[in-house]
């Protein structure tokens, strides 16, 4: 097992700077999630760690050893799970899982033991003689994980392994994955564009945009203390509300940020709580069972048309008629401030 050190790593494809100076240190046994939209460079970064892509410049160390030069993937002590799972369609489940062991010339008997052990772990022993095309998406994903596991890698690299599963299966697969990682305690780098996955799985999350790291932190840090407006709006569903108000007590051009779940009718706020109130012109209320989303605009906003969303849990039963203006409030400790020009967090 080993950590990963990445120093000023770059990858240019012609004029495109896919990865543009990334520094990262991943601890031994950590579950690190690279989160970003498509084109953010997260997959390129993963592929450079894997050795499938050669860095333009910079350093990668796995377990203290430099691997960014000519060290081929097989010598890096890594295992990778691809988005499509990349199972060998002409080989049975057993043969798929055995492939990495055959490639490193493990004796036949040991291969057998190892494959059985891994298959047991993911409860796919029943499918050993089937071909990938005879398996469901979830089963294929587990075969892919098995194939990665038998190599005893120092590092697991996972490229959106849950993206091809349907929503229901994704939840249980996520839970399985997390439990599995906790059990084997192997350093894991996980790429996803799904922030729910990132929050649920990661010990830490790296938010990437256009080849650069925007923020590194625990899910809680990234959610509650976003370093800029990009992270604030990328993480969280619905995203953080951003509002420009003219307020003499604030520096000029300051954006107020608050999460939809903190934006509640004034009457709900606990007595004595320090709140900031807004007049909220409600346009539409969306009933979602466990929550209500209230769409509208804040009257004192610099841009009165900008949509602001409030997320009311089902425990708040107060009627919110559409088309009327209501008093809503945000606890002051939940307010975040950003520079309207640079988008960076302002600590006041």
């Amino acid at each position: 097992m080993a950590g990963i050190e990445i120093r000023s790593l770059r990858k240019h494809f012609g004029d495109l700077h896919a990865v543009d100076g990334v520094d990262l240190s991943i601890d031994d046994g950590e579950f690190l999630v690279l989160l970003g939209s498509s084109g953010s460079g997260k997959t390129t970064l993963l592929r450079m760690i894997a050795g499938l892509e050669r860095p333009t410049s910079g350093e990668i160390r796995i377990g203290g050893e430099r691997v960014d030069g000519d060290v081929p993937p097989r010598a890096r002590g890594i295992a990778m799970v691809f988005q499509s799972y990349a199972l060998y369609p002409h080989r049975t489940v057993f043969q798929n899982i055995a492939f990495p062991l055959e490639a490193s010339r493990v004796p036949r008997k040991q291969i057998e033991e190892k494959v059985r052990w891994a298959a047991e772990m993911f409860s796919i022993s029943r499918y050993m003689d089937r071909y990938p095309r005879q398996l469901s998406g979830g089963e294929r994903q587990r075969v892919a994980l098995c194939r990665a596991l038998v190599r005893d890698p120092k590092v697991f690299l996972l490229d959106e392994p849950l993206a091809n599963l349907d929503a229901k299966l994704r939840n249980t697969a996520r839970d399985d994955l997390k439990r599995f990682q906790r059990r084997i305690q192997t350093t894991t780098v996980y790429v996803t564009h799904d922030q729910v996955e990132a929050m649920g799985l990661g010990d830490r999350i790296v938010v990437m945009e256009r080849g650069k790291v925007r923020q590194i932190g625990t899910p809680q840090e990234v959610y509650e203390e976003p370093v800029d407006t990009f992270v604030a709006t990328f993480v969280g569903q619905p995203p953080m509300n951003l509002l420009e108000v003219s307020d003499p007590s604030l520096p000029p051009r300051t954006l107020l940020g608050f999460r939809p779940e903190h934006f509640l009718p004034k009457g709900v706020a606990a007595a004595g709580q320090d709140v900031r109130t807004f007049r909220f012109a409600v346009r539409r209320v969306e009933y979602l069972g466990s929550d209500r989303y209230v769409y509208g605009s804040v009257v004192e906003s610099g841009a009165p048309d900008a949509t602001i969303i409030a997320k009311l849990p089902a425990t708040i039963t107060a009627a919110i008629p559409e088309g009327e203006t209501h008093e809503f409030a945000v606890p002051r400790r939940a307010l975040r401030y950003f520079d309207a020009e640079t988008g960076l967090r302002r600590r006041l």
């Binding site: 993937p73 199972l87 492939f99 490639a103 490193s104 194939r147």
Partner: peptide, 21 residues
């Protein structure tokens, strides 16, 4: 699929094993 070839590379298969297997 490119990913299958890459999976074989990551799995440690050399040129001949990739080609033949």
């Amino acid at each position: 699929p490119q990913e299958i070839v890459e999976a074989a590379i990551v799995d440690g298969a050399g040129f001949w094993r990739r080609l033949l297997v």
